[in-house]
């Protein structure tokens, strides 16, 4: 089932195009990342599909149904900062969210336990550390076991231990089959947590697909031997080779199909060339991401 489907969403603030013609589909069970630098349109996208920002153009549909505000009661979402009443206790803040979603208060201790705030529920939100505020926001999103969880930069401003805890939590929730949409500018986070990704830059969608596809190693080998000129000449005789370039101590050889390093090695060996360096080039998500941004 499609959880959310957007067609041609656009939003501009005066002359600034915050979002251009975005069409996306997120399916049930995906851990979907909206990846992009700050100001790329991630929060605008989430704001539109959550009904707090009005788009200039395009449509969106939740759960393959007609739009209705009550659909959002099945969605657990936190946008940007954790937004709560500072003078109310954590528990009272969650009571308000429960009343809005039509959920029994008995779910509050459960979600507080999940995020490790069971001892602080009675304290005022104002007294919480930033990490605790973030965790209360996630607790609020988890109320009533939503079928979709939307998290906007959930690890922003957390210390390394807090980041690790939140990621652990996200993976645990994803394992239960809840669809997760995660907006982030942290590549490492996306690589570790997500199954699918859409990359946004300046409001434009520049890549969508699975994280595996994006981090695909590519068909590139690094090679070096004592006689680099002979090596180059020999390599170019291989029909699958589509390109070769020099990079510091070795040749960077691109293939048109996935190369088998073993076969290539033995072939070169038969021609009397002994390789002193042979390595498969894996492209990190980061270099892919930077490539994508450069292409813009």
């Amino acid at each position: 089932m499609n959880i959310i489907e957007t067609t041609g969403l656009s939003k501009s603030y005066g002359k600034v195009h915050a979002l251009n013609n975005l069409s996306l589909t997120i399916r049930q069970g995906e851990v979907f990342a909206l990846l992009g630098p700050n100001g790329s349109g991630k929060t605008t996208t989430l704001g539109i599909i959550l009904g707090v920002i009005f788009q200039n153009n395009g449509t969106y549909r939740w759960f393959e149904e007609e739009n209705h505000y009550s659909q959002r009661r099945k969605i657990g979402a936190v946008l940007e900062m954790p937004n709560f009443y500072p003078y109310l206790s954590g528990t009272n803040n969650l009571k308000i969210a429960s009343d809005i979603k039509g959920i029994d208060y008995s779910d509050i201790p459960r979600v507080l336990r999940i995020v490790g705030l069971e001892d602080r529920g009675k304290h005022r939100f104002r007294t919480y550390s930033y990490g605790m505020k973030q965790r209360l926001a996630i607790a609020s999103a988890l109320l009533g076991n939503p079928s979709v969880l939307i998290l906007d930069e959930p690890t922003n401003g957390l210390d390394p231990q807090g980041i690790a805890e939140i990621r652990e939590l996200i993976l645990r929730i994803a394992a239960e089959g809840i669809t997760i949409v995660l907006a982030s500018h942290i590549l490492d986070e996306v690589q570790k947590v997500c199954s699918h990704v859409a990359v946004l830059n300046k409001g434009n969608l520049i890549f969508k697909g699975s994280v595996k596809e994006m981090t695909h190693p590519g068909y590139t080998l690094e090679m070096a031997s004592s006689d680099m000129t002979l090596l180059r000449k020999t390599i170019l005789e291989i029909p699958e080779v589509s390109g070769i370039e020099s990079e510091s101590e070795h040749w960077l050889v691109s293939f048109s199909s996935e190369p088998d390093a073993g076969i290539i090695n033995s072939m070169l060996h038969n021609k009397g060339i002994l390789l002193n360096h042979l390595s498969r080039r894996t492209k990190s998500l980061e270099s892919h991401f930077l490539d994508l941004l450069k292409k813009q």
Binding site: L50, G51, S70, R73, N83, F84, Y85, I100, G102, S140
Partner: peptide, 11 residues
Amino acid sequence: FRTIRQNVIDG
């Protein structure tokens, strides 16, 4: 406090 935003998001 931007709670109006969160109220609307919550449904």
